[in-house]
Simulated scan of single mutants.
Amino acid sequence: MNMEIQAALDVADETDSFLQITDVIYDKESEVGYDELNEAEKTVFCIDQLLREMENGGFVQFIHHEAGARAHDTHEALERIRAKASADVLSGIIAFFDDGQVPVDEDDRIAAFDLIESEHADDIASMDDRFYDSGENLVEMTLRFVQKNLKDFR
């Protein structure tokens, strides 16, 4: 996998590079499962899921789908790539949940978030805006992380 990741890093277009790297990670995840990915691989996986869900509907979409079950892992991934503003916004979303614990079970997570959203819809919309307006290029930041941690992609 390391050679595939290195080849992807050598692609000039950062979006194409990122997509090639995520393809490699997703292939591994489908073979061995998320829990068997190492920390570096989970970082890329979580950042990609966050980006996909945020593009398709913001934090509501993120929490309502599989990515939401990994909200805490995603927060750690944002910290690992040094995306402080994005991590701070996600912390705010996580803080809405009882004891800051986002349920892993999809039905429990959606039910909890639907209650949260009914009371805090404006706050959540504002957090979506803060995320989009953060100025952090998560693709670029993730590529730098991959480059620095290339040895961890096996």
Rank of each mutant, 00 (worst) to 15 (best):
G57Y: 05
K42Y: 00
V44N: 05
E41I: 02
R70H: 13
G92V: 06
F131Y: 15
T74F: 09
N137W: 03
D73R: 14
F96A: 04
N56K: 09
Q61F: 01
G100L: 08
A67E: 08
I94N: 04
E53M: 11
I63A: 08
M54K: 12
H120Q: 12
E117A: 12
I47P: 06
A67M: 08
N38Q: 13
E53T: 14
D107P: 08
E55W: 01
Q101D: 12
L78G: 09
L143W: 00
N38Y: 03
F62L: 06
C46H: 07
K42M: 04
I110F: 10
E55Q: 13
Q101P: 00
F62K: 08
E76W: 01
H65P: 00
A69L: 08
F45H: 10
I81P: 05
D107H: 13
I81S: 06
L51K: 02
E66W: 05
G100P: 02
L115Q: 15
A112Q: 12
G57A: 09
A87L: 11
L50G: 08
H64G: 15
A121T: 11
M127S: 07
I124M: 06
E66C: 01
E41W: 02
A83S: 14
A71C: 13
H75G: 03
R80I: 03
F145P: 00
A67C: 14
H75N: 12
A121E: 14
D98F: 04
A77G: 13
S118L: 15
